[in-house]
Design a protein around this nucleic acid. Structure first.
Length: 478
DNA sequence: TTTTGAGTTGTTCGA
DNA sequence: GTCGAACAACTCAAA
């Protein structure tokens, strides 16, 4: 009989369309998940990520057990724990989906080396993306820096394979080693910290079954109106598949074949593009891709940052988004753009501070997407928004939330204002405020900055950047 | 090498 | 109230 294999789950917590799982081909297997939240060289999982991970691992463990083998839970550094485990069970191969974060690539390289030293193999599969990010290049062999040609190249060159079926049973080890207990990892909010996860529990169903259900629900529901409806933050207008994709509870290939609407598929391609950028520019999460922006005159200010984080800027659309994020771990994409733009341009806070907050609070926290999107908003990324494009949170609110339904849901203190004032409460006459029970500065803050003045300040700051280098993606000194 | 066309998501101002 | 231009020219990718 052939030797057993180690099936190393990372961010592909599913059984269907899992190429590492399919590569077992009936061999004995030990599935393992390794939590590395202590290494200093990586972005440790944020609070919302930890909550989701707990539930997703619970579901994956149950699904694997039903097929014939438990899921082993371990903690530690991959380059030590994985080779040791392979050695302990006599596995000659470790199978896993490929990861693309800089630290993960480095860790995989070390795992590969350590395994090779004892004649074992690490086999990595394309699992969380449609296509390997390093296998797309321009005609000149360079990485793409603009989305549209990148997406055209992917569409022209890549055949998206049909998803693989889930196995109907697995052959586990007769005596699998004992792992750790999920509860001991303390991934959920623990006393004395208040239970902030109630809104997450009410909103989400982590795990493969929840992911597949969410995808099917979108394909038969909101997808038909997605091209127009996706900009409306209130109501079920998007797929809300992002956290499931981030944890790999459903694969992008599955999503591609089920959710066929072109504008939605383009969002999947944006995800590919973010990973393409991260692959070629591993500094993406830390530093602006456009070198001139390294000298941008940010004005770090904890008071402003906290007001933004808590949804107390005085601009209803921004505040509603930030409170939706805090309560549910998710924010509608249109509102993300407005809220992010507000932090960076109106408040002149470094985009990295916004990215950190999103990383901690988003259930769909994804290093490539989050970093690329913040750089896009800040104007220092690939294909970034021109610097003069400053969202007006009032106009955005009135355009995409005209009846104020979204703002009222997340800011109940403004719920009784009339539609015409709900996005600009500071302009409300005293009698309207009184009738709605709003006391500005008490029940809801006055605007933390004046829009027109803040906009001009941002334009001036961007205009002062060195012109020649302001747009360049590459550092010419390199 | 040079040229050409295109480039996710806006806002404001003035006619 | 509506509409077009200005915003700032630039970079990227392909022919």
């Amino acid at each position: 009989m052939s030797s057993p294999a180690l099936l190393w789950f990372r961010n592909d917590l599913r059984l269907a369309d899992n190429p590492a799982l399919a590569a077992l081909e009936g061999r004995q297997v030990l599935p393992v998940f390794l939590l590395d939240d202590a290494s200093p060289d990586r972005w440790a999982p944020g609070g919302a990520t930890r909550w989701w991970l707990h539930h997703s691992l619970q579901r994956l463990g149950a699904a694997l057990a039903a097929l014939g083998t438990p899921l082993l839970l371990l903690r530690g550094r991959a380059e030590i724990a994985i080779p040791a485990l392979a050695d302990a069970i006599g596995a000659t191969e470790v199978l896993a989906g490929r990861r693309y974060e800089p630290w993960a690539r480095e860790a995989d390289r070390r795992v590969h080396e350590a395994l090779a030293a004892s004649d074992r193999k690490l086999r990595l599969f394309t699992s969380t993306l449609l296509h390997e990010p390093h296998r797309i290049a321009t005609g000149a062999g360079r990485p793409y820096g603009v989305f549209t040609p990148f997406s055209k190249a992917v569409l022209a060159q890549v055949e998206i394979p049909a998803p693989l079926p889930a196995p109907s049973r697995l052959l586990g080890l007769a005596h699998p080693p004992a792992g750790e207990a999920l509860a001991d990892w303390r991934l959920l909010p623990q006393p004395p910290v208040p239970d902030w996860a109630a809104g997450l529990r009410a909103t989400w169903h982590p795990g493969e079954a929840g992911a597949v259900a969410r995808l099917a629900r979108f394909a038969t529901g909101a997808m038909a109106g997605y091209a127009k409806g996706r900009d409306t933050p209130e109501g079920e207008t998007t797929s809300a598949l992002s956290p499931h994709l981030a944890f790999g509870e459903v694969s992008p290939r599955q999503a591609w074949h089920v959710a066929t609407a072109e504008p939605w598929r383009r969002q999947l391609l944006w995800r590919e593009f973010s990973y393409h950028l991260l692959w070629h520019r591993p500094e993406l999460p830390e530093r602006p891709l456009r070198p001139a922006y390294a000298d941008f005159p940010w004005r770090p200010d904890d008071r402003l940052l906290h007001a933004w984080q808590q949804g107390r800027t005085g601009y209803p659309l921004v505040d509603a988004g930030m409170r939706q994020l805090w309560r549910t771990g998710w924010m509608h994409n249109r509102v993300r753009m407005v809220a992010a733009s507000f932090l960076v341009k109106h408040l002149l806070q470094p985009w990295q501070d916004g990215a950190s907050w999103f990383w901690d609070t988003l259930v769909d926290a994804d290093l490539a997407n989050n970093s690329a999107s913040w750089q896009w908003v800040a104007g220092c990324g690939s294909d970034a928004a021109p610097y003069f494009r400053v969202f007006n949170p009032v106009l955005q609110g009135e355009k995409f939330d005209p009846a104020g339904a979204y703002v009222r849901r997340w800011l109940p203190e403004l719920a009784r204002l009339p539609d015409s004032l709900v996005h600009r409460p500071w302009e409300a006459p005293a009698e309207d405020l009184a009738r709605a029970g709003v006391r500005l500065g008490e029940t809801y803050p006055r605007p933390i900055v004046d829009h027109a003045a803040a906009r001009q300040r941002a334009l001036d700051a961007f205009a002062a950047l060195p012109k020649s280098a302001a747009g360049a993606l590459e550092d010419n000194a390199a």
